[in-house]
Each structure stands twice: as structure tokens, then as C-alpha cells.
Design a protein around this nucleic acid. Structure first.
Lengths: 238, 238
DNA sequence: GTACGGTACGAACACTGTACGTTACGTACG
DNA sequence: CGTACGTAACGTACAGTGTTCGTACCGTAC
């Protein structure tokens, strides 16, 4: 396209405003971009992670990012990879396999929680990057150490990852909406249940207390144990 | 607007140029908006559901929608409610409770799958609308019929809904990305596993076949049975 | 010293969700 | 019968979004 040499009237002649005087602005890189994006994600949420916002944080323009990142989706994928890469692994120990499972999955959940929105992101398009494979390898190792058959281990691994992501996703949804009250919104839910017509919602009425009981951590680890015990029970029966 | 002057023949004179001559352009309503949005979602995906696109489908402007819908988020929530409202329920029958569970959860999954993106949406901000409460009531009823204690029923209900949403979410991710090949992308995954260095990924190498075995339906129902059996096993042990 | 390959950059495009002020309509009232 | 009014629909506008393009610059290889 033609230059359209915009003759800005007030521009002083010879004004060579090369931004070269900037001290030592470190050069761009995929790593730096992902770092900046993760920082923004952590402090302002997923919807604040825009190309322009990330570029501004790096003191550059949005267009510059596209040299290192194909597009926003690719950036998000790269962020996701980094998030799963930071979870510390558990060298499988047959004597402690269940404990290790809880520890590893718990750290996965925390990692997702530290960067809100990433859990939903992982569910939306399941990534198969290096760090995900490493995590899967570790999960399979622990399950194998626990005596799971290959098929049971593989399928259980799948289910557990799903549970972690789903729980984490719900977690930061609850945190985002219930941020005003420290009580998550349990009170609102209780009020909702109490307002239901008893004839049409007898179960919800009688189960209201149990629907709200237990904190998120307790229910998370309960879910893991349920899955593990379920697979073991089915294996024992066969 | 106000153009498209098309005086209907039988109309008496004095037909002022207005959009009134439109045959029977049904007036806007929340229902009509949600219908149009769902139709677009079904045929073009979630990212095609923009206010302008929905408005165009209704032969109006985007601004007109805001009389009936607070904003896009509210529209999506309303769509989600409708999607969960269409799943047919199962009057609890103690003799068939497990079968009923599979049927009901299966229909939930299908419903999510029919409108791609809604599963992820439900996970991202768990709705507590009328139809969701009705579904929960039914789930609790079936679990109660199966002999679950109130606490077990409540917590299991939670886990199962999570699993359904997570599976459905993964389902339509896989469908969206693997659309080109009818094989989902199993072949790509197998190739990925085969390319891994055996010394660092012994588990993934030896479990590759099992990671890919079984179709989505089989694994979905396996997951449900695992959860149910897990809770039962824990209840029996206590 | 000069040519070159790749990086940074500003501007522009085609969109998005949403707010605003103004029209047109059906209806209730004088 | 005429008129005022509340509300629904509308066009327009604004501030952003992701992404592309052409260009200006840098350090390096000749």
C-alpha cells in the first residue's frame, strides 16, 4: 500500500525519535512473551490477556509478537504448556502410590488455580505438548506402581486428569463470581434451595445440607479416592 | 432502515412507509433470540454467536437484542439453560437405578454435544438455573433409589455432572480439531507416542495402545461406572 | 563499504460488545 | 376521534479486539 506520507503539521523537522535511546531493552522471545502473558493472566484474568496488553507489558507493539507466536491461540497453548510444566513430579513408589496420586493431582490443581482460566482452556482443547506427556508418564508410573493393569491405568489416568481440570475450572469460576463474599456463594445456594417448592424438589430440599457440605479440597480428594477405589473394585470383581 | 417499501396489494391506501408491511415478522422476544442463537451455535459454532450475527438472523440490529438480553454473557447463560432443559428425565426406579443413571447422563452428554461449546461454558461458570435444578433433582432421586446415603448421593451427583461436562467438552474439542480425518486424530496420537524416547517415556510407550483403546462412548460409561462403584465400595467399607 | 536477512514497528482492516439518542408504534386516555 | 405516552426497535458511534501489511531499522556476512 502507498505510504500516505501523513504530513503531520506539528511535527518538528529532524525529530528522529528512534527509540534507540532505550537503555537495554531485552530482545523479544517466545519465553519472554509467555512470561509476560502469564503475569497478566495471574493478576488480571484471562480476558485481560490480549495481544496489545501483552505487547504493552513488553514495551512494544502487538504486531511484534507475531514473529514469535503464530496467533493468540498459540500463545495460550504455550502458556498452558508452561503451567503444566511447573508441577513437581513424584518418582513412583509402590508403597505410597495413593498418597503420591493425591499429591501430584493436588499440585496440578493448584497450578491451574494459580493461573485462572487455564483449566477451562485445557479442557477446551486438550494439549499434547511435552510437559503434558511428562505429567502423563508420571501418572501412569504411579498407577502402575499401584498395581493397575495397563488398561486400567490408562483409562484411570484419563478420568483423573479430567476431574482435576473440571474441578479447577469450577474452582476459579466460583472464585471469580463469589469474590465479593468470602463465603463463595454457599449462602446464596442455601437460600436458593430453601426457596424451592418442597413438592417438586423433595430431593434437593432434603439433600441441601449435603450438597453444600465439605470444602472444595475435601471434595476434590474424595473424588480422586472414589475414582481409584472404583477402578480397584471393578478390577477385583473381574 | 424503514426502506424496503413493499406495499402489499390488498392493503388500503395510506400505507405509510414503514417496516409494518413485513408479513408477520414476529416480535422479538427472549425466546426467539435464544432460538436463533442456538441455531447459529449448532451450525456454525460458538464463536459465530455474536450479537450482530444473532440479530441478523432475526432480521434486526444488534442493539435491539439488549431489550431482552442484558448482554452476551446473559444470552449464553440463557442458551445453556435451554440446552439442559431439553434432556428427558428418568422417573427414579429402584430396580433400574444404574441403567437410569447411564441413560440420563448419556442424554446430558448428547445434549451438550448437540450444541458445541456449551459443556465448556457450563464448566466455566456453573449455572444454577431452573432446568439445572430439575436435572439435579432427578439425579439425586435416582441415586437415592439406588440406596446412596444423602451425603454420598449429593457428592456423587456433583462428580458425575463434572465428568459429563468434562467429557463433552473434550468431545467437541476433538471433533473440532480432528474434523478433517474421520479417525479423530488417534493416528496422530499413536505417532506421537511412537516417536517418544523409550528411556524417558517407558510408561507411555508400553501403555500407548491402552491410551487409545475404546471409543469415546465406552470410556464415558466406564467412567460413570467407576464413580458409582467407587462410592459404593467406600460406603460398604465404612 | 555494501548488500542482506530478519526483527520491530506503525497503521490499517474487519470485526467485536455495548451505549446513546432518536424514531415509530400500539394503546390508553381526554 | 384525536392525542399523549411508554416502550420497543433502530442507526450510529465508540472503544477495543486479533491479525496483516509495508516499511524502517539493526547486526552481520561478504
Amino acid at each position: 500500500m502507498a505510504v500516505t506520507d501523513d504530513p503531520t503539521p506539528g511535527d518538528p523537522a529532524g525529530q528522529r525519535r528512534s527509540r534507540r535511546e532505550r537503555p537495554a531493552k531485552s530482545p523479544l522471545s517466545t519465553e519472554a512473551i509467555v512470561d509476560a502473558a502469564l503475569a497478566i493472566l495471574k493478576s488480571e484474568g484471562l480476558q485481560a490477556v490480549t495481544m496489545r496488553r501483552v505487547a504493552t507489558a513488553l514495551d512494544t507493539g502487538a504486531a511484534s509478537l507475531y514473529v514469535y507466536v503464530a496467533n493468540r491461540e498459540a500463545l495460550l497453548a504455550e502458556m498452558l504448556d508452561r503451567v503444566t510444566a511447573i508441577v513437581e513430579l513424584e518418582p513412583p513408589d509402590p508403597a505410597r502410590w495413593r498418597e503420591q496420586m493425591h499429591a501430584l493431582l493436588g499440585r496440578m490443581r493448584e497450578s491451574f488455580l494459580a493461573y485462572p482460566g487455564t483449566a477451562a482452556l485445557a479442557l477446551a482443547d486438550p494439549p499434547v505438548t511435552g510437559s503434558v506427556l511428562i505429567a502423563a508418564e508420571n501418572l501412569l508410573g504411579i498407577l502402575s506402581a499401584g498395581g493397575f493393569t495397563p488398561r486400567d491405568a490408562a483409562w484411570t489416568c484419563d478420568i483423573l486428569v479430567l476431574v482435576v481440570q473440571a474441578v479447577a475450572s469450577e474452582d476459579d469460576a466460583r472464585r471469580a463470581s463469589g469474590g465479593k463474599h468470602f463465603s463463595d456463594g454457599v449462602d446464596e445456594l442455601r437460600a436458593t434451595f430453601d426457596a424451592l417448592p418442597p413438592d417438586r424438589f423433595p430431593m434437593l430440599r432434603s439433600h441441601a445440607e449435603e450438597m453444600l457440605s465439605g470444602d472444595r479440597d475435601e471434595r476434590f480428594h474424595f473424588a480422586i479416592d472414589v475414582v481409584l477405589d472404583g477402578v480397584l473394585a471393578r478390577a477385583a470383581r473381574a
